[in-house]
Design a protein around this nucleic acid. Sequence first.
RNA 1: GGCCGAGUGGCAGAGUGGUCAUGCAGAGGACUGCAAAUCCUUGUACAUCGGUUCGAUUCCGGUCUCGGCCUCCA
Length: 446
Amino acid sequence: MLYLYNTLTKEKELFQPLDPHHIKMYVCGPTVYATPHIGNARPPVIFDVLYRLLKEIYPNITYVNNITDVDDKINARAKELGIPIRELTDSTLKLYQDMTKSLSILSPDHMPRVTDHIPEIILFIQKLVDLEFAYIVSDHVLFEVGKYKRYGKLSNKTLDQLIEGSRIEVAPYKKDPRDFVLWKPSDEETPGWESPWGRGRPGWHIECSALIKTFLGETIDIHGGGIDLTFPHHENENAQSICAHDGEPLAKYWFHNGLITVNGVKMSKSLGNIILLEDVLKEYNGEAVRLTLLSAHYRQPLDWTRKRTESSAETLKKFYNALDGYSGNGSVDQKLFSKFLNALNDDLNIPLGLSIMHEITGLIHKADNVSRETFQATLKKCGELLGLLGKNYQKDLSPKELELIEQRKKARADKNFALSDQLRDELKELGVIIEDTKEGQKWSKI
RNA sequence: GGCCGAGUGGCAGAGUGGUCAUGCAGAGGACUGCAAAUCCUUGUACAUCGGUUCGAUUCCGGUCUCGGCCUCCA
C-alpha cells in the first residue's frame, strides 16, 4: 500500500491509480540554458526513486520528463554568450544527460523536447481559444484566469491574495493582471513558429499541458516537480488543462519535492548561492552525491554541506564493505525487504529505509556464511530501489597497484612491518584501501 | 501583509499518546604487529508557555525563531 502526500489535498493519501495496469507520471524537466546545479539534481533523483518503487509495485508505468528548449531565459543567455540558441540548448542538454549518468538516474520513458512538439502546443492553445478560455490581444494569446473558478486551489491562493501581492507583471492589454501568456509574438531574431496568431512562441506553462496530453492523455496519476513550481507553473498548467478537457482533472496526485538550501536559505540564481553539480562531482563520486540527495525526507529542505556529502560517502563505503565477497546468488529476506518497502511506501520515507539498510548491514557482519548471502542479497535489493550499490566496486587495479599489493603481502609474510605500513600508505594515496583480516590482506578501491 | 511548512541529543535525521529510531562524532572494552574493518557497552533529545489526558516530544491553543510561496527558479 503506497501512500503519497498530495499537494492538491494537503494530505497523505493512499495511492489508487486510475488504471493499475498503466501508471502515468509526468515531471517538469529542466529549461536547458544553464549548467545544472545540485538543486536541479534533486527532483530527477527523488522521482527516480519513486519511478523505481512504482516499477516494483506495478507492471507498467510511463514516465515522461520534458526538456524545455524554448524560453526567454534561453534566448537571453544565448545572446549573452553570442552563440546560436540551438547550440546553447544542445550543449546544456548534454550536461543534463551527463548528470543522469553520473547520478544513476534511470531514463524516463519519454524525454520530449518542447521544440519538437510546437504543433501540439498550437492545437492546445487553439482549443482554449475556441472554448473561449483564452483571448487574443496585441498578438498575444492569454489565458483568462477568471473563467476558471477553481483557480488557486492547488497553490492554496485566493484570487484576492494574488491581486494584493501585485507583483504580477501587469501588461496593459491583460483583461485581468493574473491572466498569463499562452503564445507570444517573436521578432526576427527570436525563435518563432507560424501560428494562427502570427509568428511566435509558446508561453511558459502551455508546453507541459500539451506534452502531457500528447504522451499520457488528459488525466495522469502523478504530476511532479520542485515545490517552487506549485505557483504559478502548476497552478496555470492545471487551469489550462482542466479547461481544455471539459473539467477533467490533469493529475490525481501532485507530488512536490522540497528545495536545497545553503546555510539554511534556498539556493537560487537570484541569490547567487548556486552550487554546481560539476563542482561537487569533482570531489565526490556520483553515488555519494545521490545518497546525499536522498538523505533527508523528500519534502523537507536539504541543507547542502561538505560534512553531509562526506558522511554519505562514508555510509556507502560501509554498505559496500558489507557486500564484500557477495556471490550474487543470495535470496532476498522477504521480511526485511518488506520492512524496507513499507518505509518507502509511506510517502517515500527514504531516511527510514536507509536506517533499515544499516540494520541489515549489522546483520551481515554477524551472520554465518549461509545467512550472510541472504542479508547481502537483501541489502543489494534495497540499494537497487534507491539506485545505489550497483557498482562493481572491485575495479581493476593498475599494474603498479597490483605490484605494490604483492610487495606488501611479501613484506607482511616477512614480518617487515615498517615496509608493509609504508606500502599501505602508498596504496592509500592511490585510492586503494588495504585491510588485514584473518583471511589475509584485502583491498578495495574508493 | 496573506498562505504553507518546520523547530528532536555534539551533528545529521526518522518517528511515536505510555519499554529501541538510525547514522556520524565522543567515551570504555574486544579483536589486531600497528591500523582499518567489525563486535560489545555507553547519551536526563524532542523551541517555549498553557490546555486535554491516568500519562504528551507526539493532540489542541498561544508565543518565539527559522524557512518556502505570493516574482524567474527544481
